[in-house]
C-alpha cells in the first residue's frame, strides 16, 4: 500500500464518514440556533423586569416582589456566567438524573444548558443595550402615557436590539463552538461525531482538520447572515416627500439621504385622499 498524503486522508475521511460529520454539524447548529434564540428571549425578559422603575407611591407588595425577582435574577446571572458550561452540563444532566431521577435525553439537556447559559450573558447584553438608549426616549414615551411594557416594546427594545445585534452575533458564534463541550454528556454534536470518526479512522490530525473547516464554514456563514440582517434593520436612508398643502406643488423631487440617492414621483393630491 502506497503512503497516503495528508489530502488523501482528508479525502478518504470525508468520503467515508461525511454523513457523520454532517449529522454532527446539524446537531451543533440545532443546539446553537435554539439555544441562542431562547437565550435571547430570556435576556429580553430579564432585562425588562430588571428595568421596571420603582416609584415612591408604588405599593409594598410590588416593591417586595420586584426586590425578590431582582435578587433571583442577579444570582442566576452570576452563577451561570461564573461557572464553565461544561460543569453546568455535568450538573444538569447527571445531577438531575441522580438527585431527582429526571432522565433527560442528551440533546434536550444540551439545548436547555446552552439556553440558560446564553440567557445569563444576554441579560447583561440587553441591559447594556437598554442603558445605551437616550434617557429622553423613556421620558417621551412616559410623557404620552405609555406603561413600562409599552415603552419597552414600542420604543426602547426596537432600538436596543439593533444596537446589540453585533454582540448577539458574537454569542451565536460562541455557541456554535461551545456546543463542543456538550460531548461530556454525549450529545452527538460535531465534536462528538469527530471523536467517533477518529476512533474508527485512527487519524487524529486529518479528522480534526475536517472538523475545524466545518466549524469555520458554520461560523462564517452565520456572521455574514447577521451582517445582512443588521443592514436590513438599518433600513433605507431615503424618504419620499408627500404632496402637501403647505408646500409648493412640484412634479418631481429628489431626496438625498446618506449614501443612497433616490428619485421618486410625488403622489398627486388625488392619491392622498
Amino acid at each position: 500500500m502506497a503512503t497516503k498524503t495528508f489530502w488523501d486522508w482528508v479525502g478518504a475521511i470525508v468520503s467515508n464518514y461525511g454523513q457523520m460529520f454532517l449529522s454532527g454539524a446539524g446537531t451543533t447548529m440545532l443546539i446553537a440556533i435554539t439555544g441562542t434564540i431562547i437565550g435571547f428571549l430570556i435576556g429580553l425578559i430579564v432585562a425588562i423586569i430588571r428595568t421596571i422603575p420603582v416609584l415612591p407611591q408604588d405599593n409594598k407588595a410590588k416593591k417586595v416582589i420586584l426586590k425578590v425577582a431582582n435578587a433571583i435574577m442577579a444570582i442566576y446571572i452570576e452563577v451561570f456566567r461564573g461557572t464553565p458550561m461544561m460543569v453546568q452540563a455535568m450538573i444538569v444532566y447527571y445531577g438531575l438524573m441522580e438527585a431527582f431521577k429526571i432522565d433527560l435525553d442528551p440533546l434536550t439537556a444540551g439545548i436547555l444548558i446552552v439556553s440558560i447559559n446564553t440567557g445569563a450573558y444576554m441579560s447583561e447584553i440587553v441591559r447594556g443595550g437598554i442603558e445605551s438608549i437616550d434617557e429622553g426616549q423613556f421620558d417621551a414615551a412616559h410623557a404620552i402615557g405609555m406603561t413600562h411594557w409599552q415603552t419597552m416594546t414600542n420604543v426602547i427594545l426596537p432600538q436596543a436590539i439593533r444596537n446589540i445585534l453585533p454582540a448577539t452575533g458574537n454569542e451565536f458564534v460562541i455557541n456554535i463552538k461551545d456546543t463542543s463541550v456538550l460531548n461530556v454528556i454525549s450529545v452527538t454534536e460535531l465534536f462528538f461525531a469527530t471523536k467517533t470518526v477518529k476512533g474508527i479512522a485512527l487519524r487524529t490530525f486529518e479528522t480534526f482538520f475536517v472538523a475545524g473547516v466545518i466549524y469555520l464554514v458554520l461560523t462564517f456563514t452565520v456572521t455574514r447572515i447577521l451582517r445582512f440582517i443588521e443592514k436590513k434593520m438599518d433600513g433605507d436612508d431615503s424618504y419620499t416627500i408627500m404632496a402637501s398643502s403647505s408646500m409648493p406643488d412640484q412634479q418631481f423631487i429628489k431626496i438625498r439621504g446618506g449614501k443612497h440617492e433616490h428619485r421618486q414621483w410625488l403622489h398627486d393630491e388625488s392619491d392622498q385622499k
Binding site: G136, Q137, A140, A143, I144, G145
Partner: peptide
Amino acid sequence: VTKYRAKLGMVFQQFNLFDNK
C-alpha cells in the same frame, strides 16, 4: 399615573422623537 400623563402633553428641549419610528 399613565392615564394622567396621557392628558398632559410634553414637548422637550431635545425633541425626544422616537428614533425608530
